[in-house]
Structures are given as structure tokens and as C-alpha cells.
Write a protein that binds this DNA or RNA. Structure first.
Length: 208
DNA sequence: ACGAAGATCGACT
DNA sequence: GTCGATCTTCGTA
């Protein structure tokens, strides 16, 4: 294993303050940050290349638009925690809880570019490390990182699940309406999805 | 109790 | 592109 060059600045875990910013700011700034999950099996991590802002309870596309329920409780909690939920009984989706306690805003992580723990991701996904399908969707990246309902409500300022800064060059960020929220009327048109232009792991290919 | 609706994925044409 | 799988949550009775 080679040592990291001394000039390369060390990654820094994002502090609670990051999650206190407005939800659209967090969604945009999440692009390029690294999502890390440490388990007994090892560490896996990837650069976030696609994220969406959900601004309930007004935003009808957000699960929190129907109030505080058992499922959405984490979104109503303090910032800097994980809101994880099951989709279609098949896949888990991971969100960053944003804004003050009682304000149910969240950022859905829709795609990452693998950075560390590629072998572990390969095994969890049953795909080669070079496959785009390894992490190009909300349910795929959670499987690759080993995130499930067991991580519901986890503190993102803890030691197992968190975001860190990246030394990667600054990304060109694109914007579009959110994916698969057509049923929420006027809210569906809002351009609250952010992605890194040209990145092959972005789930739904934009025209760029 | 029951039924409908998902912030999706992967197989197939 | 289309379609079925799969299951929890929540609204209604």
C-alpha cells in the first residue's frame, strides 16, 4: 500500500454546521463530497455526483409533506443525521437530514462515484468494479456501501457514516427537475436535482 | 383488517 | 422503452 503524497490535503469530516445550511445549498454542495460508510467488513466510500433537495412539509414530493410519521421521524429530528427508507420493498435510499429540528428537510443521495473499498462494493453488488451500475442509482449506492434500515437515524457526525471533503477538482454542476416525482404536481417541476456534468455515474443521463 | 401507492431495479423485447 | 417484483407505510373502515 502506497503512502498518500504529503501535499495532498487530508480529507476532513464535515461538521454539523454543513447540515444547518438551506437544503438547496446542502444539495448543491453535496456534489463532490465523499460519502463514507465503515462497517466490520471494512470501509467503502464514493464521491457524490447526484443529489436532490426535498423541502417538506410544503413540498408535496417529500415524504414529510404528510406530517410526522414513524417512517419520517428522522427528517423532523436534528440536522446531520441519516434518513433511510425502503423503496418499493426492494431498495434502500439514503438522505441527509438538513435544517433545524422540527423542519423536515432532506437531501437524497442519488449516485456516487466509487472512491475506496471497490472490492467490497463489487462483492456486495455482484458486479465488476468498473461497471457503471455499481453505484449509479439511489438503491444501488446504498447496497454498494452496505447502508440499510439499520443505519436509520445515524448521526453523520459520528465515526461510521459521514461525509468528508475531497481533493478532487471542482465539479461542473448541472441542475434539473427531480427524478420520478411527477405525481406531486407543480412541485415536480422545481429544479431541485443537482449533478456533476459529464460524470458516468449520474443515474438519469442529462443532455448536458 | 384491507388496499393502494411508491424519491427503484433488473430482466427482457 | 416496458414491465413485474416486493413489502412497508399509511389512510380508511
Amino acid at each position: 500500500m502506497k503512502r498518500r503524497p504529503a501535499l495532498k490535503s487530508a480529507s476532513v469530516k464535515l461538521p454539523r454546521e454543513f447540515y444547518l445550511q438551506p437544503v438547496l445549498t446542502v444539495a448543491r454542495q453535496a456534489i463532490g463530497k465523499v460519502l463514507v460508510h465503515r462497517t466490520p467488513e471494512g470501509e467503502a466510500a464514493g464521491r457524490i455526483v447526484e443529489a436532490e433537495a426535498y423541502r417538506g412539509p410544503q413540498d408535496r414530493a417529500s415524504h414529510s409533506s404528510r406530517g410526522l410519521t414513524r417512517r419520517t421521524a428522522a427528517m423532523f429530528g436534528p440536522p446531520g443525521h441519516a434518513y433511510v427508507y425502503l423503496l418499493y420493498g426492494v431498495s434502500w435510499a439514503m438522505n441527509l437530514v438538513v435544517a433545524l429540528e422540527g423542519t423536515p428537510h432532506a437531501v437524497l443521495i442519488r449516485a456516487i462515484e466509487p472512491v475506496r473499498g471497490l472490492e467490497l462494493m463489487e462483492r456486495r453488488r455482484g458486479l465488476s468494479a468498473t461497471a457503471r451500475e455499481l453505484t449509479n442509482g439511489p438503491g444501488k449506492l446504498t447496497q454498494a456501501l452496505g447502508i440499510t434500515g439499520a443505519q436509520y437515524g445515524f448521526d453523520l457526525c459520528g465515526d461510521s457514516l459521514f461525509l468528508e471533503t475531497s481533493a478532487h477538482p471542482r465539479a461542473r454542476i448541472g441542475r434539473s427537475p427531480r427524478i420520478n416525482v411527477e405525481s406531486s404536481g407543480e412541485w415536480a417541476a422545481r429544479p431541485w436535482r443537482f449533478y456533476e456534468r459529464g460524470n458516468r455515474y449520474v443515474s438519469v443521463r442529462p443532455r448536458d
